[in-house]
């Protein structure tokens, strides 16, 4: 192949990878609002809201997410944090259609999944969501 064409293709590969990276980074930590019953067997829910975090052994950002969630739990009453290993609870990973770790579900005291966050959580986005969940419970 002509070296100039090869160079152009290599540049295109870098450009595509950059776009993929920017799009991926934009999705990380975004809060998606949901409704639906949790059916989380074996998970004890807190009265206000419980962060149910799906983690795995090979997940670098899971630890940072766990730390942020633990800090939030320590800062307010009525919150809980449960970390599940997807390899130990594959049925729950399948039930909730988990496609990446960490994925965090915000479950209210009635067992409704109110929000879902894919990727490392962003504290300010999560705090705002928490205000909403704790402030106005949905009608059952």
């Amino acid at each position: 192949m002509d070296p100039l064409l090869a160079l152009a293709l290599v540049a295109a590969l870098v450009a595509v990878a950059t776009i993929v990276g920017l799009v991926w980074r934009g999705t990380q930590g975004r809060v998606r609002r949901t409704t639906g019953s949790a059916r989380l067997d074996g998970v004890v829910l807190a009265s206000g809201a419980t962060f149910v975090q799906f983690s795995s052994e090979f997940c670098a950002p899971c630890r940072a997410t766990a730390r942020v969630l633990d800090e939030l739990v320590g800062s307010r009453d009525g919150l809980g944090h449960v970390e599940l290993d997807v390899a130990e609870r594959p049925e729950l990973a399948a039930r909730f259609g988990i496609l990446q770790t960490p994925t965090t579900l915000v479950v209210d005291g009635r067992g409704t999944v109110r929000a879902r966050i894919g990727g490392a959580v962003r504290r300010e986005l999560l705090t705002a969501e928490l205000d909403r969940v704790l402030g106005a419970p949905v009608a059952a």
Partner: peptide, 14 residues
């Protein structure tokens, strides 16, 4: 970007 391959691929194996 700090993308973590194990965060998705390992989960797919599970």
């Amino acid at each position: 970007f700090g993308y973590c391959l194990g965060c998705q691929l390992y989960l797919l194996l599970v």
